[in-house]
Nucleic acid binder design. Sequence first.
DNA 1: TCTAAATTTCAGAAAGTTCTGAAATCACGG
DNA 2: CCGTGATTTCAGAACTTTCTGAAATTTAGA
Lengths: 187, 187
Amino acid sequence: MNLPPLIQSFVLHFGEMGSRWGINRTVGQIYALLYVSPRPLNADDIVEALGVSRSNVSMGLRELQAWNLVLLRHIPDDRRDHFTTPDDVWQILRTLAEERKKREVDPTLSVLRELLMLAPGSAEERHAQARMAEMHGLIERLTTWYDDVKRLETERMTALLALGARVTKLLDAKDKVVGLVRGRKEG
Amino acid sequence: MNLPPLIQSFVLHFGEMGSRWGINRTVGQIYALLYVSPRPLNADDIVEALGVSRSNVSMGLRELQAWNLVLLRHIPDDRRDHFTTPDDVWQILRTLAEERKKREVDPTLSVLRELLMLAPGSAEERHAQARMAEMHGLIERLTTWYDDVKRLETERMTALLALGARVTKLLDAKDKVVGLVRGRKEG
DNA sequence: TCTAAATTTCAGAAAGTTCTGAAATCACGG
DNA sequence: CCGTGATTTCAGAACTTTCTGAAATTTAGA
């Protein structure tokens, strides 16, 4: 590996965290490298920077493309494929959330739905099904909320984040106003 | 493995998903089994239900305890340790979020902070640092929001979820009211 | 304190994954 | 439609993780 110290530390950290994030070391390193690079890199640039085999880089880029985390760019007068990460970190976050949901949540949701359709054959199975229903309900609420919120523009998203838990104060205020209006109409 | 079909499907699914969630097959299966079980189980119950070795169950339970995902219970007149999962699925979700943050996010946040303190040695490093700053800013916003929201009681949490993206309408309404009040005071 | 059941530890076997170099395939310019 | 360079595929080597059975340790009651 042959990189400026600051970048090397960042790349190595992403490599180490890779396994916790469900990707392998090389994939993590490739992503990190592309993320901080000021210009698109081709596969050989990555081979040289990280000191791994050409084929490993090829497989890593393939996986990152499957995750929609890198973009293929073409440089004029250069046949080779070049890669970057999207500039907008919010967009990256959205992509990451979307892909993780697809891989880590959706399959479970669909298994739960299937199992909840079956008739329980015993008290034990009836209890199990009740627990599955609780889990299904929770996940469904969360994903519905997520589907809703993911469509917000970045600006509204940040406004929401900045509000934090104070959002519930707003909720209380709304309830009060609604109460007043009702009172006036009905009274 | 010797389980009613409905429960077996659930347990097998959790085993398969385990690797995507950063836990191993046995750990996933143990958790699933405890989650749907109507009463606390001891290690031998789990060995029998899942058909894995006693020591493997011991290690799995150990890991689940490290994740705070199972509770140790004692049954009167029985020396053996028994295990359950918490009843409240919201509590489970909170625990899961907390643990994942601790393992998957916090280390990166602290590495980013460190690297942002260093003086860049070149234009390349300066650019890299700017990218790291963007990432750091995003993660910090998100974790601050999370720290804020995780303290909400379940009821308020569900209210917030139910509102979904409509929460931003509320935000607009608030801005309008604030504007009105300001206008009155100043005008 | 002693005993026996319960639990944990640990070294090595089994299983799974990541990585490489060599060969195959692809695709562009002539 | 050929030659060259870019890219992908793939079998097996290297490495990592998971799992087991045996031995060691812990624990609760006699």
